[in-house]
Write a protein that binds this DNA or RNA. Structure first.
Lengths: 150, 150
DNA sequence: ATGTCACATTAGATTTAATCTAAACTCTTC
DNA sequence: GAAGAGTTTAGATTAAATCTAATGTGACAT
């Protein structure tokens, strides 16, 4: 995505396009994987050493609130983020913890009643296993994770 | 689950049934929700004030390694755990962050090819929205935004 | 242009979660 | 009862995230 588009999407959400905010957004969009907040800070701070940690975290919070960025559910202690506009599922590597995108497809709704009084907004799939990089070294001793055969 | 069953499942996995290990397991099994490591430590430590933090974390790690407990994928910085009895999906509340179980059902596999060289072990669904407690009020995250409750 | 006000940013301190360390304890087996 | 693997402990340490209080910036009404 080009600079203008980032600028427009920020301002469309009522956020000023400051250099720091822009940098956070740009780092997130050029990544295919989902960096942690700390990684984003390092990348932004490397590009402009005057950008502080608090600003990165504040901007991340603001971007999530504005809906331009999502926090990704994953194990591990560091929050991971995701700015891609396209819907996708996630694949988490058992071995290295990386979070990758998996092409989107629709998922059947839960049996009516099993959600009770809850209000459903969205749902996504989390796949687990070994990523392309970790897979060749050793095959897992896994059980079938409830997958329906094709 | 009763005490004997916990003891047996620990020993079946090659883990000694120590009072501390037992306590961690018991706390996890009596919870319908998925406590964070810190909450588990507090609960175990309240029951037996002599149980240290490191032991709780060690035991949690050992139990996950033995496959008796799973770490649950969720936003937020604290690891959440789940004594894997029955398979289930997860519902995460947008407002209060609680993680609840949703009845299990099988999920269709991704289109062949979209996983590439990755090795799939399991998959689960993550639903997002408002939990039964938060749904009726529709208030912003955190505190009451100055509105009088209904 | 200048004063003002809301929004942003900053360095550094603080809080919180998790992990590490080194010593001590406890079973089990010989 | 000595040896040794496996556990536990208190406290120190690391790492991530957040808070604080001061400062900077830009829009805009006067």
């Amino acid at each position: 995505m080009d600079a203008e588009a980032i600028k427009r999407s920020l301002e469309g959400s009522g956020l000023r396009c400051t250099p720091q905010r822009y940098a956070v957004m740009a780092v997130l969009m050029e990544q295919t994987r989902h960096p942690t907040a700390a990684e984003i800070f390092k990348a932004v701070n490397r590009a402009d050493p005057r950008c502080s940690r608090a600003t990165t975290y504040n901007n991340l919070r603001d971007l999530v609130q504005a809906g331009l960025v999502r926090e990704v559910a994953a194990e591990g202690r560091a929050a991971r983020f995701d700015a891609t506009g396209i819907r996708h599922h996630h694949f988490i590597c058992d071995r290295c913890g990386k979070v990758e995108d998996v092409e989107w497809y629709d998922v059947p709704q839960p049996r009516s009643g099993s959600l009770g009084k809850r209000v459903l907004r969205e749902c996504e799939l989390i796949f687990r296993g070994l990523c392309a990089k970790c897979a060749p070294r050793r095959l897992p001793v896994g059980r079938n994770g409830g997958l329906r055969p094709p």
